[in-house]
């Protein structure tokens, strides 16, 4: 099949970018979207041109490294699918495809379609963990987790931190990502000791990184390749409110 690609090219964060148009005539339906870009890059290299830079790693839909906003939708048109698991059979012969990087102030462009998502890492470092003593692992059944809570925690833990929520949000908000990470621990007994401090610190870091505010448009939920629900944002809002009135808030204020 043939496709016409409009790809965002940008040398680095300083220079201005623009769209370049490429035509590919030898695309197979069974190629993944990234394999299609590999074919384009091989062609560009043979022509002595600079290949298109894009992020990828596992190509199994679980690592969260691939990105790309395809025809205005992060990870492309297929529901609950990462770019690497999107196949060219979802497009028609002769289609024009617009490929842009994930856009947000907190995700500066490194090159072409590659953006710096380390803001997410710093949010995790601020509180997206539980503190445990080293040593032997405890007996698994010594802490009971109700089935309902385990299911909810697993739903939240599905988040692969790809940043599609930020890319989809017209405000560049990271509430779905942070909501998922906060909720993941909030549903489990192991998450309780640091529950209030965690939500305060992670939200504070999220704001420092320059993400926007949530307008409850739910565009993030629709774009999420792991179908994380916005109910985790609601849970985070509630936890944040409770934590804002607690002793932990005083601790955060005193440490500032």
């Amino acid at each position: 099949m043939k496709v016409k690609l409009h790809i965002w090219r940008q040398k680095n964060n300083k220079e201005k970018g623009k769209f370049e148009t490429y035509e590919l005539n030898n695309v197979l339906e069974d190629m993944s979207f990234l394999e299609m870009l590999d074919v384009l890059n091989e062609k560009l290299i043979l022509e002595g041109k600079e290949p298109v830079a894009f992020d990828h790693d596992c190509r199994e839909g679980i690592c969260g490294a691939c990105s790309l906003t395809i025809n205005g939708i992060p990870h492309g048109p297929e529901k609950a699918t990462t770019t690497c698991q999107l196949h060219m059979r979802k497009f028609k012969d002769g289609d024009e495809i617009w490929i842009e990087p994930f856009r947000a102030k907190a995700f500066p462009i490194i090159k072409d379609l590659v953006v710096d998502r380390s803001a997410f890492d710093r949010i995790i470092q601020a509180g997206g963990f539980i503190s445990v003593n080293t040593g032997q692992a405890p007996e698994a059944n010594s802490i009971l987790v109700p089935k309902q809570n385990a299911d909810n925690a697993m739903d939240a833990a599905q988040c692969i931190g790809c940043g599609a929520c930020v890319a989809a949000c017209p405000n560049g908000a990271a509430m779905l990502f942070v909501g998922a990470k906060v909720s993941h621990f909030a549903y489990l007994p192991q998450g309780q000791p640091e529950r209030k401090l965690r939500v305060l610190k992670m939200v504070e870091q999220m704001q420092k990184e320059g993400f926007g505010n949530c307008s409850n448009l739910y565009e993030c939920e629709a774009a999420c390749p792991k179908e994380i629900s916005v109910r985790f944002i609601a849970l985070m809002n509630r936890d944040y409110l409770k934590a804002s009135c607690s002793e932990e808030k005083l601790e955060v204020i005193n440490n500032e």
Binding site: F19, T69, N71, E100, A168, P170, L217, E221, A222
Partner: peptide, 9 residues
């Protein structure tokens, strides 16, 4: 975005 498709908003 040069092209933007809303899914749910």
């Amino acid at each position: 975005y040069a092209v933007k498709n809303y899914l749910k908003a």
